[in-house]
Simulated assay, not measured.
Amino acid sequence: MAGISSRLIIVLSFLILEGTASAQKKSKQQPLRLFLIGNSFSQNASKYLPEISKQGGHQLIIGRAEIGGCPLQRHWDSVAVNLADSSRGRAYNGRSLKQLLSEGTWDVVTIQQASVFSGDLATYSPYARNLYNFIRQVQPNAKIVFHQTWPYRADAKMFGRINGNVFAKDQKEMWIYSRSSYHSMADSLGIQLIPVGDAFWKVASDAKWGYKKDTTFDHKNPVYPHLPTQDHALNIGYFWDKDRKLAFDANHANDAGCYLAGLVWYGFLFKENPRKVSFVAPGIPEDFAVELRKVAAGVLKKNTK
């Protein structure tokens, strides 16, 4: 018994030392400094990223240059105006993109197209390249990447543009054109993509996990506070506004969509497996959370081949 006890003490001591070393390693890890140039979609995608990162033992600092609905053109136009006259072009709460980017050293800087223009490749030029060159001047050592935004929910009233004033006819077409445009521009710039749009489509197109419209709900005569069933939706969808009127948002991510996007970002930034994440965003059923982690891991694996 004494021999067994001694061996047990040795094993426990080893595990304690190993755990302590691991904790010390995590505590000494330098924070990843992430800067987002985007809009509400980048805000959605990063909503749960700090909590996911913290749970995984990673420190994260996020900087932002975000304007609601802002496309690449508007981001670049603000830079061009500011370069010509430093008192103008301060589009981010009175500050310029150059000012924000110059605050310390950023490890990763992301750019994205506004979702409504994401399927129209012509809307990316020359703005994406101009922004890329500008970021490279201000932050020469930063890794610049594209955030691939997502398609709108299947029951959206309208989808994104794919060619001038031509709009995608459905969710799948929006995803296909958006994906193609992001990849074409990323390849042209020689940068990587954070494949959030692919993850959204993977869930939406799944026979079991994809959102299906509730055909039993009377949309013409809704009664507060009842809402249609929206199981497995990744977009906000139907909700009651402050005036108790039934509102609809098929574009922005709900908590499940924000969680999925955060998982993809986490896996991309830290080279971690999203399936090992234990944090779950509020209100997401455990079985659905498991599926979202699986999807995030799958699209990252596919995009790194």
Rank of each mutant, 00 (worst) to 15 (best):
A80R: 06
L32R: 10
N44W: 08
Q73R: 01
S87F: 08
I61F: 08
R64P: 07
Y48I: 05
G69C: 08
N44V: 03
R33I: 04
I62T: 13
S86V: 07
S53D: 10
I37F: 14
H58R: 09
S53L: 05
L72Y: 08
A91G: 12
G63D: 09
R74W: 03
N82M: 04
P71Y: 02
Q30W: 03
I61V: 15
G57K: 02
Q59V: 03
L32C: 08
K47N: 13
V79C: 01
F41C: 11
G38H: 02
D85K: 02
D77A: 15
V79H: 02
G57R: 00
L49S: 09
E51A: 12
E66F: 05
V79E: 00
R33F: 06
A80D: 14
R90G: 02
A45D: 15
Q43M: 13
D85H: 07
Y92Q: 09
A84Y: 08
N82A: 04
L72A: 03
F41G: 13
L36N: 07
G69W: 06
S42L: 14
N82W: 05
P71E: 03
R74H: 08
A80K: 06
Y92C: 13
Q30N: 12
S53R: 01
Y92G: 12
S78A: 14
A65S: 14
S46D: 11
D77W: 10
P71A: 04
H75N: 00
N82K: 00
S40I: 02
G69K: 00
L36V: 12
L32S: 10
S46K: 05
C70N: 10
G56K: 05
L83F: 01
G57V: 03
R33A: 12
L60T: 04
H75G: 01
I37G: 05
A80I: 01
G69L: 08
G57Q: 05
L36P: 07
G69E: 11
H58P: 08
I62S: 13
Q59P: 03
S86G: 07
I62D: 11
D77I: 09
A45Y: 12
N82C: 07
S46Q: 06
W76S: 00
S53E: 11
P50I: 05
E66D: 11
L36M: 11
Q59I: 02
L83H: 04
R88C: 06
S86I: 11
F35L: 11
E66L: 05
N93A: 14
Q59W: 07
S78K: 01
R64Y: 14
R74F: 09
E51I: 10
W76T: 01
L83G: 00
P50R: 03
W76P: 01
A84I: 02
